[in-house]
Design a protein around this nucleic acid. Sequence first.
DNA 1: CCTTTTACTTGACATGGTGTCAATTGACAT
DNA 2: ATGTCAATTGACACCATGTCAAGTAAAAGG
Lengths: 200, 200
Amino acid sequence: MVLYSMSSSIPDTRTRILQATCTLLEDSPQKTTRMADIAKAAGISRQAVYLHFSNRAELLIATTRFVDQTTDLATRLNPSRVADTGVERLEEFILAWGSHIPEIHPVAQALMAMKDSDAAANEAWSNRMQAMREGCAAAVQALVRDQVLMPEHSDAEATDILWTLLSVHNWELLTQECGWTQAQYVAKTIAMARRMLVCT
Amino acid sequence: MVLYSMSSSIPDTRTRILQATCTLLEDSPQKTTRMADIAKAAGISRQAVYLHFSNRAELLIATTRFVDQTTDLATRLNPSRVADTGVERLEEFILAWGSHIPEIHPVAQALMAMKDSDAAANEAWSNRMQAMREGCAAAVQALVRDQVLMPEHSDAEATDILWTLLSVHNWELLTQECGWTQAQYVAKTIAMARRMLVCT
DNA sequence: CCTTTTACTTGACATGGTGTCAATTGACAT
DNA sequence: ATGTCAATTGACACCATGTCAAGTAAAAGG
């Protein structure tokens, strides 16, 4: 048992590693963060990281879950799930996911960078995107139910379009490269989704 | 089956390296292609590659230019440049660029994978995307001239939207992950661009 | 109080890809 | 014959990941 396990103080090592990973990835965007850097930031030896995570990919995957948990993505998605109309569901979904992107983005980028060289990282990220796709599919179904989905798209195509529109990469281009604010990103993305998917 | 014309001899080593790079990147998508693999495919020693390209990044950058040249992107863009109406210009631009993407995609992917670790690769890719953005800006200007650009977008925003819509990554998601055909990609992308940018 | 377990440390080392260097070869031109 | 050029070979440094063995300090538990 840990002496200071109560309400605060020093988090356990595993958590400190995850926090260090987040911090480093946030602070040094698009620079390769090494295992040694993470260890140093967590205040342990490089080798000790491997006592908690068997390899870099697993650490990054665990970090995505850690971020999900600390930012409570599930709760954030609630307004979309309980929306009355299809359009509301769509808009709330975009707001929820769009607000989540900046938070997972640093880790997501690191994970995506491993995609080509690491099968586990590839699959982990695929699964996440697949899960997100289900949110898109649900929003599209709500539009279908309300009979407001544009007739030129099949359900699958509409889902594909929304899924692509909401990709992390698009967020990256618009906010990082084009300099859009987060608010602008959300507002414009909602407008684009409506225009592309909802018949007027 | 005949790779080289009878009259001309075997292409020079530099060209063979570039061809080998293309072939390998096309054939083994999303797998790390090593310098040694390229050398072997070009029929030379690994070290000899460095007699022609100082490092991996430079080789990949040269390969993008090589692909541009062999597929004649400039000519392909002509119909857009000479289009009468803004909408035509937009549509021809999407067709040209959208048809070009599958050709540069293998190299583009390899280059983008180096973005985070190699400054030169990052800049080279940025420049390419910046050049593409000018095509987007020109198409948007043509819409403005014809007074058909949707009033809710500024010129810059419209350019940002088109530029993002036409990103290599979006092509990748739609054709690789969602299984769209190339024709479907082009048709739908044109439709989306019109709906988002052109007032009806 | 002594023993065991747990978490971590240190140092050493294998692996794999990139990039460099020196010495050498073989063809071709002058 | 000689010099140049392209390429070869083998060796090696670098760097990040991941592994292994031996050691330590402190808490757990009898």
